[in-house]
């Protein structure tokens, strides 16, 4: 992987983590405020962005979810380092 590819991977992965966390937080808020219009709109925005990031990230840098593994390239699920390794963070 070239330096610029690694940078792209790191910045996409960081954004994936941030957007997903916003969704984690909104999910809990919406459980107890299910009709809050601004939270519902925000959830939709972050959800769309997360789907875009995953569509860009997974084919190039490996699946984040095992349901998304593309087996044309072999079993890519186990290629990237496990999340508890420093190099995955």
């Amino acid at each position: 992987m070239t330096g610029s590819q690694a940078n792209q991977r790191d910045s996409l992965f960081m954004e994936l983590r941030q957007v997903s966390f916003a969704l984690d937080e909104l999910r809990l808020f919406l459980d107890t405020h299910p009709t809050d219009a601004s939270a519902l709109a925000l959830f939709g925005e972050y959800q769309a962005r997360r789907n875009e990031i995953l569509a860009e990230y997974s084919p190039v840098f490996g699946p984040v979810e095992s349901y998304d593994v593309n087996t044309d390239g072999g079993w890519g699920w186990i290629n990237a380092p496990m999340p508890w390794e420093t190099e995955a963070n």
């Binding site: 979810e65 095992s66 999340p83 508890w84 420093t86 995955a88 963070n89």
Partner: peptide
């Protein structure tokens, strides 16, 4: 549950 291969918040400890 489905496992997502990432931590919720990064852990990167040097020492």
């Amino acid at each position: 549950w489905e496992y997502e291969k990432r931590l919720q918040f990064p852990v990167k400890i040097k020492n």
